[in-house]
């Protein structure tokens, strides 16, 4: 697989009292292959969402380079779409207009936009709700709309920030299965942030465990990556068969949390 995302030695910090800077991410490097499903795990506050914000182009690193498909990331772009935990749908638009929102920048013909949006609504199982308003949908349905809206513009990289965290267990399981099916069909590159080890094991080709920059700077790990685990293909889909990976991830998470706690952070896994 060719390399799609290249994150080279980036740091992100903010000023704190005494003229010092607090590092959220420090000297971080990572590359992601095209079509790869990468999950990022880590204790709260370790910089997972900040990393996503950097890759999306919402924030600029203090130094270092982020490239997607050879192009340097400088601002948000339709080639990198985002799915949020809180859906971030546009409540003044109905379901199909939400899905077709980004297509306006790619396709001039309205009919054509609606045809494509309808196809993606079918893919997420919501074709009967095309004209429904957002407020009529359940949490799981809203997240399907958000997923269709993010995928319909055919992004090179799909960024997902704990997308299923607000859902109940049943909806979460359904959405995980749906995402696996859609990913197998479309094969977009995915960078997926989650707190759930099981979710990461079910979805990902590759799992990265992150820790806080300051803790990592003590030489406990390379950069702020605690573990970089590539799941073998064909990978087992049953959680019971993924026991070894699970143990490895949990050990890395525990170690990351301990490191952060020693630094005085409230590192909840």
């Amino acid at each position: 697989m060719s390399e799609l995302v290249n994150i080279d030695n980036i740091s992100l910090s903010y000023p704190v009292a005494g003229g010092k800077r607090e590092y959220i991410i420090k000297d971080f490097s990572l590359s992601i292959s095209a079509g790869e499903f990468t999950c990022i795990l880590g204790p709260s506050g370790c910089g997972k969402s900040s990393l996503l914000g950097l890759v999306a182009g919402f924030t600029k690193p203090d130094h270092g380079i982020i490239e997607v498909a050879g192009r340097r990331v400088s601002r948000p772009d339709i080639s990198r779409t985002l799915v949020f935990q809180e859906y971030a749908l546009f409540p003044w638009l109905n379901v199909i207009d939400n899905v077709a929102f980004g297509l306006k920048y790619q396709i001039a013909n309205r009919q054509e936009r609606y045809m494509i949006a309808t196809r993606y609504l079918q893919m997420v199982g919501l074709s009967k709700h095309a004209k429904s308003s957002i407020s009529e949908l359940s949490g799981g349905m809203k997240q399907r709309v958000a997923l269709a809206r993010a995928l319909v513009v055919k992004p090179q990289l799909l960024l997902m920030d704990e997308p299923f965290a607000a859902l109940d267990d049943t909806s979460r399981g359904t959405m995980q299965r749906e995402l696996t099916r859609i990913w197998s069909e479309l094969k977009p590159s995915v960078l997926f942030i989650t707190h759930s080890v099981d979710e990461a094991l079910l979805l990902a080709d590759r799992i990265i465990v992150m820790t806080k920059a300051d803790a990592a700077a003590q030489g406990q790990s390379r950069g702020i990556i605690k573990a970089d685990i590539r799941l073998t293909e064909p990978r087992p889909r049953e959680l019971s068969q993924l026991g070894a990976y699970r143990r490895q991830i949990l050990d890395s998470l525990a170690s990351a949390a301990t490191g952060m706690a020693e630094m005085g952070y409230d590192a909840e896994i």
Binding site: R75, F90, A150
Partner: peptide, 29 residues
Amino acid sequence: IPREIIRAAQCLGAKYLDLYVRVIFPAII
């Protein structure tokens, strides 16, 4: 306006005046 709404629109290609017309203005109605 929730930050995610603006960010979602930016990721989908909305910017400058279009961001105001299609997202910010409807969001504040």
